[in-house]
């Protein structure tokens, strides 16, 4: 009923103006009707349709436009983009084969870390502070360096045994997230001189050592194989300034 009254009012208004102007207005309206969807599409505008102006249709074009720009972007986990930037993530949740060995740091799901959503942090714990540089809650920085090109890639070598490697090779029993949590824990305790810790300065770098209540990994490499891979309860962290050089479990 209301729409019918509006249309009658529009027709009456057209009757009151000169024929020439009425024709121009009608042509303009037809042009708008034909071009409105295309203009919206081309320029990303949100011009309302005539139908919505008259009241036949709800203006939905605006909400349709917002979807691709906002929802899709925010739904993409930030860590994914960081992962590709840093190109350091090979595997994070694999290598469960040795989970028989109890870990001092229980595996923490991403949801449990901090107040921020897990997607905001790399490996669920690190914050990007610069190009390819990530900081842990304890203030340790993981950046470019080492033979592998990035310190995270380097310490990742200690998530797996290298049975052919001469000498000792400490292997952490857990994923990258649990490893980073353990490194932070060891560093924080050793830095403050906690019980069962050591701090050894060495020509520009510092070696921090800390004991854990339970095994955190096992001894790998050729030497570890010879000794039947004994469990390890200590972690050694080598830093230069606050930048991590390497970290691994040791005997």
């Amino acid at each position: 009923m209301v729409q019918k009254q509006r249309q009658d009012a529009a027709i009456n208004a057209l009757r009151m103006i000169p024929t020439k102007w009425a024709v121009i207005i009608v042509v303009a309206i037809i042009g708008y009707v034909l071009l409105q969807p295309q203009v919206n599409k081309w320029f990303g505008w949100s011009l309302p349709s005539v139908a919505s102006l008259v009241g036949d249709e709800k203006p939905t074009s605006k909400t349709k436009q917002e979807k691709p720009n906002s929802v899709e972007k925010t739904s993409t986990p930030k860590s994914d983009s960081k992962q590709s930037q840093a190109a350091v993530e090979k595997k994070s949740d694999q290598d469960d084969s040795r989970s028989k060995t109890p870990t001092a740091q229980p595996r923490v799901s991403d949801q449990q870390v901090g107040a921020e959503p897990p997607s905001e942090k790399f490996h669920g714990i690190l914050v990007e502070i610069g190009r390819n540089r990530f900081e842990s809650p304890a203030g340790l920085v993981y950046g470019p360096g080492s033979e592998e090109g990035h310190r995270l890639k380097h310490i990742e070598r200690h998530l797996e045994d290298q049975p052919k490697r001469p000498g000792l090779h400490g292997v952490f029993d857990g994923d990258m997230h649990a490893f980073l949590v353990a490194i932070d824990d060891a560093y924080s305790r050793a830095k403050s001189g906690g019980k069962g810790t050591k701090k050894i300065p060495d020509q520009g770098s510092t070696i921090y050592e800390a004991s854990f209540a339970k095994p955190i990994g096992f001894l790998g490499g050729q030497e570890g194989g010879r000794k039947r891979q004994p469990p390890l309860k200590k972690l050694r962290v080598v830093v230069r300034g606050n930048s991590v050089i390497t970290a691994f479990p040791f005997q």
Binding site: R165, P166, G167, L168, H169, G170, I207, R236, V238
Partner: peptide, 15 residues
């Protein structure tokens, strides 16, 4: 081949 002198006397794990 890995060519090395000895295990690292500083960190213990390195070559």
């Amino acid at each position: 081949k890995i060519i090395y002198v000895e295990s690292c006397p500083i960190c213990g794990d390195g070559l």
